[in-house]
């Protein structure tokens, strides 16, 4: 478990980093927190010619609110998000999701940009990005572009970002007061990747539901936005019957794969169970 030989660069600026990516023509990997990349290198599953380490670019770590969005520099550590008062106030779903990310040492190194760009479909952050209709900012040779969550995830460990682009910012719409949220996850052990997780956000409006947001982790090759299930709630409100119907619909909307930890049937079953639990808890949160 020793990596193949690679060049290592620690640029001090984003422009320098972009120039390096250009120089290696798609044969370089970006090192953020390294929590997924380093094992891939050691297993020789990833064999880049070079690593471009973003850890020496201080301008890439920040959390700020702007135009109803909370914006994160790509190199913002998960640990910083976990303890950010702004995130606690404006993005409580992300805060809750962060507690499910790995273990403390992993969150201390791991970054929001790295987690999303790595695009592990069992990870929590891609599910939250998908549920909240977030977006990322990618910078490349031609400048910056904004990529919506629904356009970002292609398949397992694959995004629509170009090899010469760097994910520099993550943007999530802030959550209005009065909304309810929950992330329900089932993993084999504390800190493991999700077998299935459901991120839920509901905005109750009296007996009605003004908006519902649901997305999965672990239930397919990309996070799945459960729009048809959301629509049941937006149409019928947040009654027990509507929640059960939405949960049942959620299970129909996913196409999970089988692996040694869980069969597709079991994952589909969990999708329904966790959707129902997430919605019920989100509703309780909304009602304070």
């Amino acid at each position: 478990m020793k990596p193949v030989k690679f060049d290592y660069h620690a640029p001090a600026s984003l422009d320098e980093a972009l120039a390096l990516l250009r120089r290696y023509g798609g044969d370089a990997k970006i090192l953020a927190g390294g929590q997924s990349l380093m094992p891939l290198l050691n297993f020789r599953l990833s064999r880049p010619a070079a690593l471009v380490d973003l850890n020496r670019i201080p301008s890439l770590a920040y959390i700020e609110e702007h135009d109803g969005q909370v914006r994160f520099g790509a190199m913002t550590r998960q640990r910083m998000i976990e303890f950010s008062p702004l995130v606690a106030r404006r993005l409580p779903l992300l805060r809750e999701a962060t507690k499910w990310v790995g273990h403390l040492p992993i969150r201390t190194r791991g970054t929001i940009g790295g987690s999303i760009a790595h695009a592990d479909p069992s990870a929590e952050y891609p599910a939250v990005l998908t549920a909240l209709d977030g977006e990322v900012v990618a910078r490349g040779p031609k400048g910056e572009r904004v990529v919506k969550a629904k356009d970002l995830f292609v398949t397992y460990l694959t995004t629509s970002l170009e090899p010469d682009e760097i994910l520099v910012e993550v943007r999530l719409p802030a959550t209005d007061a009065g909304a309810g949220f929950a992330l329900e996850e089932f993993a084999r052990r504390h800190g493991d990747f999700a077998i299935v997780a459901i991120a839920a956000l509901v905005v109750p409006d009296g007996a009605r539901c003004r908006a519902a947001r649901l997305a999965t982790a672990g239930a397919g090759p990309v996070p799945v936005r459960l729009r048809a299930a959301e629509q049941i709630l937006e149409r019928d409100g947040l009654t027990d019957a509507a929640i059960d119907a939405a949960a049942g619909r959620a299970a129909e909307l996913v196409s999970p794969d089988s692996d040694i930890h869980a069969s597709a049937d079991y994952r589909r079953h969990l999708t329904a169970v966790l959707t129902r639990r997430a919605l019920r808890r989100a509703l309780r949160v909304a009602h304070g």
Binding site: R188, R189, H190, D192, F193, I260, H261
Partner: peptide, 16 residues
Amino acid sequence: LLTGSLMDYLVPTAAE
């Protein structure tokens, strides 16, 4: 072997 790492061969931790 499909359980060739400790991500796939699961040993209990204090949390379990």
